[in-house]
Computed example of a mutant assay.
Amino acid sequence: MEKIAHRNISVNGISMHVAEIGEGPPVLFLHGFPELWYSWRHQMLYLSSMGYRAIAPDLRGYGDTDAPASASSYSTLHIVGDLVALLDALALDQVFLVAHDWGAIIAWYFCLFRPDRIKALVNTSVAFQLWNPSIKPLQALRETFGDAYYMCRFQEPGEAEEGFAQADTAKVMKTFFSSRNPSALCLPKGKELGAIFENPLLTVPSWLTEEDVNYYASKFNQTGFTGGLNYYRALDLSWELSAPWRGLQIKVPVKFIVGDLDLTYHMPGVKEYIHNGGFKKDVPNLEVVVMEGVAHFLTQEKPEEISAHIYNFIKKF
Rank of each mutant, 00 (worst) to 15 (best):
M151G: 00
G190V: 06
F225H: 08
T203W: 02
L202H: 01
P188G: 06
N132E: 12
L202D: 05
E211H: 05
F154V: 10
W207D: 08
S183A: 13
E161L: 08
Q222P: 06
G194N: 03
P137R: 11
V204P: 04
L202W: 06
T144K: 13
P200I: 03
G228P: 06
F177A: 03
C152Y: 01
G163P: 05
S218Q: 13
P205Q: 08
L208D: 06
P157G: 07
V204G: 05
M151F: 15
G146M: 05
F128N: 04
Q129Y: 09
P205R: 07
L229R: 00
C186F: 07
T169D: 03
S179W: 09
F164D: 06
Q129S: 07
R142Q: 14
T209L: 05
Y216V: 08
G227D: 04
Q166T: 09
A217S: 10
A127M: 03
W131D: 11
A217N: 09
F128A: 01
F197I: 00
K171V: 15
N214L: 11
K191T: 12
L201W: 05
Y231R: 01
V172K: 01
Q129M: 10
A148R: 06
R142G: 07
F197M: 02
A170F: 03
E211K: 10
N199E: 12
G194M: 05
P205S: 07
K174N: 06
A217V: 04
L202R: 02
C186D: 07
L202C: 02
Y215G: 00
P157N: 11
F177R: 03
N221S: 13
E159M: 11
S206W: 10
P188D: 11
P133D: 09
E211I: 01
N181R: 13
M151H: 12
A127S: 12
L187V: 14
N221T: 11
N199G: 02
